[in-house]
Amino acid sequence: MGAPGVDGLGDVVRVLRQWQYDAGPVQLHPGDVGWFWRFGAQRTAAATRTWSRAGKVLAVGLLDGAELLRLAFAPQALRDEELARQVVEDVSAPERGVLFEGRAYVEAPTGALVQDLLLKDGWASGEPWTPLRCDLGGPVSDPGVRVEVIGPEQAHEWAAVLRASFDGSTFTDERWRAMAAGAPYVDARCLVVRNERGEAVAAVTVWSAGEGRLGLIEPMGVHRAHRGHGYGRAVTFAAARALQQLGSSSVVVCTPSSNVGAVATYRSAGLEQLPERRDLYRNAS
Protein backbone atom coordinates (compact mmCIF):
# COMPACT_ATOMS: atom_id res chain seq x y z
CA MET A 1 0.00 0.00 0.00
CA GLY A 2 1.23 3.48 -0.80
CA ALA A 3 0.21 7.12 -0.97
CA PRO A 4 0.81 8.82 -4.34
CA GLY A 5 1.51 12.35 -3.13
CA VAL A 6 0.33 15.42 -5.01
CA ASP A 7 2.64 14.73 -7.95
CA GLY A 8 1.20 11.23 -8.36
CA LEU A 9 -2.48 12.16 -8.33
CA GLY A 10 -2.60 12.60 -12.09
CA ASP A 11 -1.39 9.02 -12.55
CA VAL A 12 -4.06 7.76 -10.13
CA VAL A 13 -6.77 9.58 -12.08
CA ARG A 14 -5.51 8.10 -15.37
CA VAL A 15 -5.59 4.59 -13.89
CA LEU A 16 -9.13 5.07 -12.56
CA ARG A 17 -10.29 6.24 -16.00
CA GLN A 18 -9.07 3.00 -17.56
CA TRP A 19 -11.11 0.92 -15.08
CA GLN A 20 -14.49 2.49 -15.97
CA TYR A 21 -16.40 0.40 -18.50
CA ASP A 22 -20.07 -0.38 -19.05
CA ALA A 23 -19.92 -4.11 -18.27
CA GLY A 24 -17.93 -3.54 -15.09
CA PRO A 25 -19.13 -2.89 -11.55
CA VAL A 26 -19.90 0.59 -10.25
CA GLN A 27 -16.84 1.60 -8.25
CA LEU A 28 -14.66 4.56 -7.28
CA HIS A 29 -14.61 6.87 -10.32
CA PRO A 30 -12.14 9.62 -11.24
CA GLY A 31 -15.08 11.96 -10.68
CA ASP A 32 -15.25 10.90 -7.04
CA VAL A 33 -11.64 11.97 -6.67
CA GLY A 34 -12.47 15.14 -8.58
CA TRP A 35 -15.35 15.99 -6.24
CA PHE A 36 -13.09 15.40 -3.21
CA TRP A 37 -10.57 17.79 -4.81
CA ARG A 38 -12.76 20.66 -3.60
CA PHE A 39 -10.70 20.38 -0.41
CA GLY A 40 -7.49 20.99 -2.36
CA ALA A 41 -4.72 18.87 -3.86
CA GLN A 42 -2.87 18.31 -0.58
CA ARG A 43 -5.90 16.85 1.21
CA THR A 44 -6.79 14.76 -1.83
CA ALA A 45 -3.30 13.29 -1.95
CA ALA A 46 -3.40 12.59 1.80
CA ALA A 47 -6.71 10.75 1.36
CA THR A 48 -5.58 8.56 -1.54
CA ARG A 49 -4.09 5.07 -1.25
CA THR A 50 -2.84 2.67 -3.93
CA TRP A 51 -2.02 -1.04 -3.96
CA SER A 52 0.48 -2.18 -6.57
CA ARG A 53 2.33 -5.25 -7.75
CA ALA A 54 5.39 -5.27 -10.00
CA GLY A 55 5.02 -1.53 -10.46
CA LYS A 56 1.40 -1.74 -11.66
CA VAL A 57 -1.46 -0.20 -9.67
CA LEU A 58 -4.16 -2.81 -9.02
CA ALA A 59 -6.39 -1.00 -6.51
CA VAL A 60 -7.08 2.59 -5.47
CA GLY A 61 -8.73 3.80 -2.29
CA LEU A 62 -10.09 7.21 -1.30
CA LEU A 63 -10.58 8.07 2.36
CA ASP A 64 -13.82 10.00 2.04
CA GLY A 65 -13.80 11.36 5.58
CA ALA A 66 -12.39 9.74 8.69
CA GLU A 67 -14.57 6.61 8.58
CA LEU A 68 -15.12 5.65 4.92
CA LEU A 69 -12.72 4.05 2.45
CA ARG A 70 -13.99 3.87 -1.14
CA LEU A 71 -12.26 1.33 -3.38
CA ALA A 72 -11.74 0.55 -7.05
CA PHE A 73 -9.95 -2.43 -8.59
CA ALA A 74 -8.38 -3.15 -11.95
CA PRO A 75 -10.75 -5.43 -13.90
CA GLN A 76 -8.35 -8.38 -13.73
CA ALA A 77 -7.78 -7.89 -10.00
CA LEU A 78 -11.37 -7.92 -8.75
CA ARG A 79 -11.00 -11.49 -7.43
CA ASP A 80 -7.22 -11.47 -6.88
CA GLU A 81 -6.78 -13.24 -3.54
CA GLU A 82 -3.32 -11.92 -2.68
CA LEU A 83 -4.43 -8.36 -3.33
CA ALA A 84 -7.73 -8.75 -1.47
CA ARG A 85 -5.99 -10.17 1.61
CA GLN A 86 -3.52 -7.29 1.60
CA VAL A 87 -6.31 -4.71 1.39
CA VAL A 88 -8.20 -6.39 4.23
CA GLU A 89 -5.06 -6.46 6.36
CA ASP A 90 -4.40 -2.80 5.70
CA VAL A 91 -7.94 -1.59 6.42
CA SER A 92 -8.30 -3.75 9.52
CA ALA A 93 -5.16 -2.49 11.24
CA PRO A 94 -5.50 1.15 12.41
CA GLU A 95 -1.73 1.52 12.74
CA ARG A 96 -1.44 1.19 8.96
CA GLY A 97 -3.09 4.60 8.61
CA VAL A 98 -5.99 3.65 6.34
CA LEU A 99 -8.96 3.75 8.72
CA PHE A 100 -9.09 4.91 12.31
CA GLU A 101 -10.01 2.72 15.24
CA GLY A 102 -13.70 2.35 15.96
CA ARG A 103 -16.60 2.40 13.54
CA ALA A 104 -15.43 2.33 9.95
CA TYR A 105 -16.89 1.69 6.51
CA VAL A 106 -15.54 0.21 3.28
CA GLU A 107 -17.23 0.72 -0.09
CA ALA A 108 -16.07 -1.94 -2.53
CA PRO A 109 -17.41 -2.84 -5.98
CA THR A 110 -19.96 -5.63 -6.21
CA GLY A 111 -18.22 -8.95 -6.81
CA ALA A 112 -14.89 -7.90 -5.33
CA LEU A 113 -13.24 -10.64 -3.26
CA VAL A 114 -12.39 -8.08 -0.60
CA GLN A 115 -16.10 -7.97 0.31
CA ASP A 116 -16.17 -11.70 1.02
CA LEU A 117 -13.02 -11.53 3.13
CA LEU A 118 -14.21 -8.56 5.18
CA LEU A 119 -17.48 -10.35 5.96
CA LYS A 120 -15.50 -13.39 7.11
CA ASP A 121 -13.39 -11.05 9.23
CA GLY A 122 -16.47 -9.86 11.15
CA TRP A 123 -17.54 -6.82 9.13
CA ALA A 124 -21.28 -6.37 8.54
CA SER A 125 -23.47 -5.08 5.71
CA GLY A 126 -24.52 -1.45 6.04
CA GLU A 127 -27.31 0.67 4.59
CA PRO A 128 -28.32 0.04 0.97
CA TRP A 129 -27.39 2.35 -1.90
CA THR A 130 -29.05 2.40 -5.31
CA PRO A 131 -26.94 2.77 -8.46
CA LEU A 132 -28.73 3.94 -11.59
CA ARG A 133 -27.40 3.89 -15.13
CA CYS A 134 -28.39 5.02 -18.64
CA ASP A 135 -26.81 4.13 -21.97
CA LEU A 136 -25.79 7.18 -24.00
CA GLY A 137 -25.56 5.46 -27.36
CA GLY A 138 -28.89 6.88 -28.51
CA PRO A 139 -30.66 10.24 -28.37
CA VAL A 140 -31.01 11.99 -25.00
CA SER A 141 -34.15 13.99 -24.29
CA ASP A 142 -33.99 17.78 -24.42
CA PRO A 143 -34.10 19.17 -20.86
CA GLY A 144 -36.70 21.70 -21.97
CA VAL A 145 -35.14 24.43 -19.80
CA ARG A 146 -32.29 26.90 -20.01
CA VAL A 147 -28.99 25.19 -19.17
CA GLU A 148 -25.63 26.91 -18.70
CA VAL A 149 -22.11 25.58 -18.35
CA ILE A 150 -20.56 27.24 -15.31
CA GLY A 151 -17.15 28.88 -15.34
CA PRO A 152 -15.25 30.78 -12.64
CA GLU A 153 -17.36 33.91 -13.07
CA GLN A 154 -20.55 32.00 -12.17
CA ALA A 155 -19.01 29.78 -9.48
CA HIS A 156 -20.80 31.69 -6.72
CA GLU A 157 -24.19 30.89 -8.29
CA TRP A 158 -23.42 27.18 -8.61
CA ALA A 159 -22.18 27.11 -5.01
CA ALA A 160 -25.29 28.90 -3.75
CA VAL A 161 -27.62 26.38 -5.43
CA LEU A 162 -25.65 23.50 -3.97
CA ARG A 163 -25.81 24.98 -0.46
CA ALA A 164 -29.56 25.39 -0.87
CA SER A 165 -29.92 21.78 -2.05
CA PHE A 166 -28.28 19.92 0.84
CA ASP A 167 -28.90 20.53 4.52
CA GLY A 168 -25.72 21.54 6.29
CA SER A 169 -23.75 22.17 3.10
CA THR A 170 -21.00 24.80 3.44
CA PHE A 171 -19.87 24.67 -0.19
CA THR A 172 -18.27 27.92 -1.41
CA ASP A 173 -17.04 29.33 -4.69
CA GLU A 174 -13.48 28.90 -3.35
CA ARG A 175 -14.12 25.17 -3.10
CA TRP A 176 -15.51 25.21 -6.62
CA ARG A 177 -12.27 26.81 -7.83
CA ALA A 178 -10.20 24.20 -6.00
CA MET A 179 -12.27 21.43 -7.59
CA ALA A 180 -11.97 22.99 -11.05
CA ALA A 181 -8.19 23.17 -10.67
CA GLY A 182 -7.94 19.39 -10.16
CA ALA A 183 -6.76 16.88 -12.75
CA PRO A 184 -10.16 15.13 -13.10
CA TYR A 185 -11.93 18.37 -13.99
CA VAL A 186 -10.36 18.34 -17.46
CA ASP A 187 -13.13 15.87 -18.32
CA ALA A 188 -15.89 17.49 -16.26
CA ARG A 189 -18.59 20.14 -16.57
CA CYS A 190 -20.64 22.05 -14.00
CA LEU A 191 -24.13 22.99 -15.15
CA VAL A 192 -26.99 25.08 -13.79
CA VAL A 193 -30.63 25.06 -14.82
CA ARG A 194 -32.40 28.42 -14.83
CA ASN A 195 -36.11 29.09 -14.52
CA GLU A 196 -38.12 31.52 -16.64
CA ARG A 197 -36.93 34.41 -14.41
CA GLY A 198 -33.28 33.51 -14.97
CA GLU A 199 -32.76 32.20 -11.42
CA ALA A 200 -30.38 29.28 -10.95
CA VAL A 201 -32.61 26.51 -9.58
CA ALA A 202 -30.63 23.28 -10.02
CA ALA A 203 -26.95 22.35 -10.27
CA VAL A 204 -24.97 19.30 -11.32
CA THR A 205 -21.41 18.23 -12.03
CA VAL A 206 -20.67 15.53 -14.59
CA TRP A 207 -17.38 13.66 -14.83
CA SER A 208 -16.28 11.87 -17.97
CA ALA A 209 -13.69 9.10 -17.79
CA GLY A 210 -12.90 9.47 -21.47
CA GLU A 211 -14.25 8.38 -24.82
CA GLY A 212 -16.37 5.23 -24.64
CA ARG A 213 -16.23 5.00 -20.85
CA LEU A 214 -18.67 5.33 -17.97
CA GLY A 215 -19.46 8.90 -16.89
CA LEU A 216 -20.56 10.00 -13.41
CA ILE A 217 -23.04 12.48 -11.93
CA GLU A 218 -21.67 13.84 -8.62
CA PRO A 219 -23.30 15.90 -7.17
CA MET A 220 -26.78 16.94 -8.32
CA GLY A 221 -29.08 19.18 -6.36
CA VAL A 222 -32.26 21.23 -6.70
CA HIS A 223 -32.71 24.43 -4.71
CA ARG A 224 -35.15 23.69 -1.85
CA ALA A 225 -37.24 26.74 -2.80
CA HIS A 226 -37.77 25.45 -6.34
CA ARG A 227 -38.64 21.80 -5.88
CA GLY A 228 -41.69 20.14 -7.35
CA HIS A 229 -41.32 21.74 -10.79
CA GLY A 230 -39.40 19.01 -12.61
CA TYR A 231 -36.01 20.69 -12.37
CA GLY A 232 -34.34 17.55 -11.02
CA ARG A 233 -35.45 15.60 -14.07
CA ALA A 234 -34.41 18.46 -16.36
CA VAL A 235 -30.93 18.81 -14.88
CA THR A 236 -30.46 15.02 -15.14
CA PHE A 237 -31.27 15.19 -18.85
CA ALA A 238 -28.81 18.09 -19.14
CA ALA A 239 -26.15 16.03 -17.34
CA ALA A 240 -26.66 13.06 -19.66
CA ARG A 241 -26.40 15.31 -22.72
CA ALA A 242 -23.19 16.88 -21.44
CA LEU A 243 -21.62 13.47 -20.81
CA GLN A 244 -22.69 12.29 -24.26
CA GLN A 245 -20.96 15.34 -25.77
CA LEU A 246 -17.84 14.49 -23.74
CA GLY A 247 -17.81 11.02 -25.30
CA SER A 248 -19.13 8.96 -22.38
CA SER A 249 -20.76 5.64 -23.28
CA SER A 250 -23.18 5.76 -20.34
CA VAL A 251 -24.01 7.74 -17.22
CA VAL A 252 -24.16 6.40 -13.68
CA VAL A 253 -25.17 7.85 -10.34
CA CYS A 254 -25.45 6.30 -6.89
CA THR A 255 -27.76 7.53 -4.13
CA PRO A 256 -28.89 6.19 -0.74
CA SER A 257 -31.88 3.88 -1.26
CA SER A 258 -33.61 5.77 1.54
CA ASN A 259 -33.62 8.88 -0.67
CA VAL A 260 -36.68 7.72 -2.57
CA GLY A 261 -37.18 11.14 -4.14
CA ALA A 262 -33.76 11.08 -5.77
CA VAL A 263 -34.26 7.53 -7.02
CA ALA A 264 -37.61 8.52 -8.52
CA THR A 265 -36.11 11.61 -10.15
CA TYR A 266 -33.33 9.67 -11.83
CA ARG A 267 -35.74 6.97 -12.99
CA SER A 268 -38.03 9.62 -14.46
CA ALA A 269 -35.07 10.85 -16.51
CA GLY A 270 -34.57 7.39 -18.01
CA LEU A 271 -31.90 5.92 -15.75
CA GLU A 272 -32.28 2.22 -15.03
CA GLN A 273 -32.25 1.17 -11.38
CA LEU A 274 -29.52 -1.43 -10.78
CA PRO A 275 -29.34 -3.93 -7.89
CA GLU A 276 -28.69 -2.33 -4.53
CA ARG A 277 -25.20 -2.33 -3.07
CA ARG A 278 -24.11 -2.02 0.54
CA ASP A 279 -21.05 -0.67 2.30
CA LEU A 280 -19.44 -2.91 4.88
CA TYR A 281 -18.80 -1.64 8.37
CA ARG A 282 -17.21 -2.60 11.67
CA ASN A 283 -18.41 -1.31 15.01
CA ALA A 284 -16.29 0.57 17.52
CA SER A 285 -14.26 -1.82 19.65
Rank of each mutant, 00 (worst) to 15 (best):
G10L: 02
H29I: 07
V26R: 00
G65Y: 03
G31D: 11
L28K: 03
Q27L: 08
P4H: 07
L16M: 09
R43Y: 06
R53N: 04
V57H: 01
E67M: 14
Q27G: 10
G31F: 04
D64T: 13
G34A: 10
D22I: 10
G61P: 10
W51F: 13
A54L: 11
D32Q: 03
W37H: 15
L62P: 07
L62C: 09
W51G: 12
A54R: 13
G10F: 02
A47L: 02
V6M: 02
G24S: 08
R70K: 14
S52R: 07
R49F: 11
W19F: 06
W37C: 15
Q42L: 05
R70A: 15
P25A: 15
D7I: 15
P4Q: 06
S52M: 03
E67G: 02
D32P: 00
V26W: 00
D22F: 05
R49S: 11
K56P: 01
S52N: 04
T50L: 01
G40V: 12
F36Y: 15
V12P: 05
W51S: 11
V33Y: 04
G31H: 08
W51H: 06
Y21D: 10
Q27F: 09
W51V: 07
A45V: 04
L58P: 14
L16A: 10
G8L: 08
R17K: 14
F39A: 03
D7K: 13
V15Q: 08
Y21T: 12
G55E: 04
H29E: 13
T44G: 10
D32W: 00
L63S: 15
W19S: 11
L58H: 11
P25D: 05
S52H: 09
A46H: 08
E67I: 14
G65M: 12
L9F: 05
W37F: 12
Q42I: 01
V60H: 06
H29V: 06
G55I: 13
Q18T: 14
V13Q: 03
V60Q: 02
L68M: 11
W35A: 14
K56L: 04
A41P: 13
R43K: 14
A66D: 13
T48Q: 01
L58V: 11
R49H: 13
G55W: 07
L68R: 11
A66K: 08
A45K: 02
A41D: 12
G24L: 08
P4L: 02
A47V: 08
V12W: 01
G34C: 09
V33T: 15
L58K: 10
S52V: 03
G24C: 06
G10V: 09
L69T: 02
G34W: 04
L58S: 11
L69C: 07
K56D: 14
L58C: 12
D22N: 04
A3L: 01
T50P: 01
Q18D: 14
L63C: 15
G31V: 04
K56Y: 00
D11A: 15
P30A: 12
G2M: 09
W51Q: 09
D11I: 06
D22M: 07
T44R: 03
R38D: 05
V13I: 15
R43S: 12
L68G: 01
A45T: 08
R17S: 10
L69A: 05
G2N: 10
V26L: 05
A23Y: 03
Q18W: 08
D32A: 11
R38P: 02
A66G: 04
